[in-house]
Amino acid sequence: MFKTIILLSVVAAALAAPALADGRRDQPTQQSVPTRGYDFTDAGDIRILHDRLRRAARSLCDSRMPRQLGARMSDRACARESLDRAVAALGQPLMTAYHDGQPITSRERQLALSSH
């Protein structure tokens, strides 16, 4: 099982151009989110970890320019892309289903358990 997942901000550098326009690079380029101890067949654990990943992506992509509409839009796009990549990197079917807005049913949990 994965110990951590890295949210890459290659996208952040491209999408958060307003924050980097003056040459500042005070944002981290990646952030680790521990995944050890989470049960990827448990809906509660999946929700908690997804929320942690979402918050990390938002933090990673925050240009700290809340009054500029373009910067806010870039920040949101960056956070969405970073979260999408983090979920895909996990390779956990139930996490992917939850991320895609699908309910996690007991049948899906059984399938996930049988695949391990």
Rank of each mutant, 00 (worst) to 15 (best):
L60R: 01
P18V: 15
T41M: 07
S63R: 12
A16R: 09
D75N: 11
A57G: 07
V11Q: 12
I46Y: 06
C61Q: 03
R47A: 00
R24I: 08
R72T: 01
M1N: 12
A14M: 07
A112Q: 12
S74W: 04
S106E: 14
D22E: 11
Q110H: 07
L111E: 05
P93K: 02
A12D: 15
G44M: 11
R54A: 04
C61V: 00
S114K: 14
G23R: 08
D22W: 11
S114W: 14
T96R: 15
Q92P: 06
A14K: 06
S59V: 05
L53E: 05
G23K: 07
T4E: 13
P34Q: 10
Q92G: 10
S115V: 01
A77Y: 12
R64G: 00
S82Y: 00
L111Q: 13
T96W: 15
R80N: 14
R52F: 00
T96C: 11
R109P: 04
H50L: 09
S115A: 13
G44W: 12
A56K: 02
Y98I: 02
A56Q: 06
T35D: 03
Q68D: 15
C78T: 03
R67Q: 02
S115E: 08
R107V: 15
R36L: 13
H116Y: 10
A43Y: 07
G44A: 12
F2T: 13
R67S: 02
P103R: 04
A16Y: 02
H50F: 07
R36K: 14
H50A: 03
R55S: 02
A12Y: 03
Q110K: 09
L15M: 08
T96P: 07
R67F: 06
R72E: 01
D45A: 10
Q68M: 11
I46N: 05
R54L: 08
P28E: 05
F2Q: 12
D75H: 10
